[in-house]
Simulated scan of single mutants.
Amino acid sequence: MELKFRGQNLNISYDLKLAMNAAAKASKYSREQILERMEESCRRHGIKTQISMSLLEKWLNPQADEHVMPLKLFPVFCRAVDCDCTELLSILMRPLGYRAIDQQQEKLLSWAEAYQEAKVAKNRLKKIEGSL
């Protein structure tokens, strides 16, 4: 039985692992360096965990559905591979009907909202002028 929420499949494991694997491959860091960077970030930020290379490989393997990276390590991974991780966040949020946006998209959204507000204000001004 497939669970759905707002028409979306709630089992994001495969898609998320596929995207995380792609992010790791696209990274300028090797798998060993990614592991080292994750361990260093965990130490620096007081995140208590044990990560091994075999565990990291399982977390990045879409076929290893029973091994999922703990959520507390998700930002650590994103920092370690040095990607913006917008797509990864979107995969997490998709079943809830949301998507992540980057800083440029946020600026465009703010511009569109301001533009819409200006349009509404302009129409209000025209109505007021027409009644004078």
Score class of each variant (00 low, 15 high):
L35G: 11
L35Y: 05
L35I: 09
L35E: 11
L35D: 12
L35N: 07
E36H: 04
E36G: 10
R37M: 09
R37Q: 05
M38G: 12
M38P: 13
M38Y: 03
E39D: 10
E40Y: 00
E40K: 10
E40W: 02
S41M: 07
S41W: 13
S41Y: 12
C42F: 10
C42V: 14
C42Y: 07
C42T: 14
R43M: 13
R43W: 08
R44W: 04
R44I: 12
R44E: 15
R44K: 14
H45N: 15
H45Y: 09
H45E: 11
G46L: 09
G46W: 09
K48V: 14
K48N: 08
T49Q: 07
T49I: 10
T49D: 10
Q50T: 14
Q50N: 15
Q50C: 04
Q50F: 03
I51S: 08
S52I: 01
S52V: 02
M53L: 13
S54F: 13
S54K: 12
S54C: 14
S54A: 15
L55Y: 08
L55P: 09
L55F: 07
L56S: 06
L56H: 03
E57L: 10
E57A: 15
K58D: 15
K58P: 05
K58W: 09
W59C: 04
W59A: 03
N61K: 09
P62N: 10
P62L: 11
P62R: 08
P62M: 13
Q63V: 05
Q63W: 00
D65W: 01
D65V: 10
D65H: 06
D65Y: 04
E66G: 02
E66V: 05
E66S: 09
E66C: 03
H67L: 00
H67N: 05
H67E: 10
H67S: 10
V68T: 11
V68E: 14
M69Q: 06
M69W: 00
M69Y: 04
P70M: 03
L71A: 15
K72A: 12
K72P: 02
K72M: 08
L73C: 09
F74L: 08
F74M: 10
F74D: 02
P75C: 01
P75W: 02
P75H: 00
P75T: 01
V76W: 00
V76F: 02
F77G: 13
F77R: 02
F77S: 11
F77H: 09
C78H: 01
C78P: 03
C78T: 13
C78Y: 07
C78M: 08
R79M: 06
R79S: 12
A80Y: 03
V81I: 12
C83G: 14
C83A: 08
C83T: 15
C83V: 15
D84P: 03
D84S: 06
C85R: 01
C85A: 15
C85D: 15
C85N: 11
T86P: 04
T86W: 03
T86V: 14
E87D: 14
E87H: 11
L88N: 06
L88I: 11
L88W: 01
L89A: 14
S90M: 02
S90C: 01
I91H: 08
I91Q: 11
I91K: 06
L92F: 10
M93F: 12
R94D: 06
R94Q: 14
